[in-house]
Design a protein around this nucleic acid. Sequence first.
DNA 1: GCAATATGGGACAAATTTAGCCCTATGCAA
DNA 2: TTGCATAGGGCTAAATTTGTCCCATATTGC
Lengths: 128, 128
Amino acid sequence: MRERKIPLNLNCGLDLIGEVLYGKWKIRLLWFISEGHKRPSELHRKIPGASRRVLTVQLNELEAHDLIRKKVYAVVPPKVEYSLTAFGKTIIPLIGALGKWADENETRLRDLILNNETKLPEANRDGY
Amino acid sequence: MRERKIPLNLNCGLDLIGEVLYGKWKIRLLWFISEGHKRPSELHRKIPGASRRVLTVQLNELEAHDLIRKKVYAVVPPKVEYSLTAFGKTIIPLIGALGKWADENETRLRDLILNNETKLPEANRDGY
DNA sequence: GCAATATGGGACAAATTTAGCCCTATGCAA
DNA sequence: TTGCATAGGGCTAAATTTGTCCCATATTGC
């Protein structure tokens, strides 16, 4: 975040989607929360590839965007639970649909992605 | 792209979605192409906020991922037309749904986003 | 007493994505 | 003859996103 130097576009709906859902782990976070994984540590276990730091940052953003709500228990060690807001719930079906689409095309997508991971970079390496 | 130092996760469908749709302008590109805006210059006019460079890069990626197809006419000045592949067409309804969701919640989203744009950065500025 | 637990956040480093420029090519119009 | 239009891609710089490390907290169990 911090002071943005390149202005936001907020023209069409798709721009807005970008702002709210754009973040490497956000849709996964929303999805797992919708599945009932509420605590940050749980979510981190579900998404081990992400650093704890980014997850908390993105959770904060989702909260700021009113998609999730945070409940802090005054105990030690700390306990925190996230849940979807009513607003957040309205977007879950869409995320579900995306996941379903990807699952249905899983092998195809995986092939396409991996193909390009091994092809494009080699072309670049020559340039160094 | 180039040589990736942080490995990809390709576990669940949502990871795959990330790889294919993650890119600042990709869903907009797909959407506009689906609306019949085929030529790079047209697309650029529809998305003036993006640099021409990134658009061509992201178009290349979409093509590599088999969501769009490119037709090059051997004329001068050059003429290129993109169109959705059959595979690409299957994802359009999902993008449409996202756009619709955002349109329906437009003012709310805009408020939430702008609110945070002005609030969070100020909190940070103090730290400098 | 010391480690482990769960969470948050500051400071800074690295990785990755985007933006900005420049150059090419060739007809057509002013 | 100069300039524009169209598309691509190399290269470098900036912006932005992610990751790493470290500290703090209070209680339970060893």
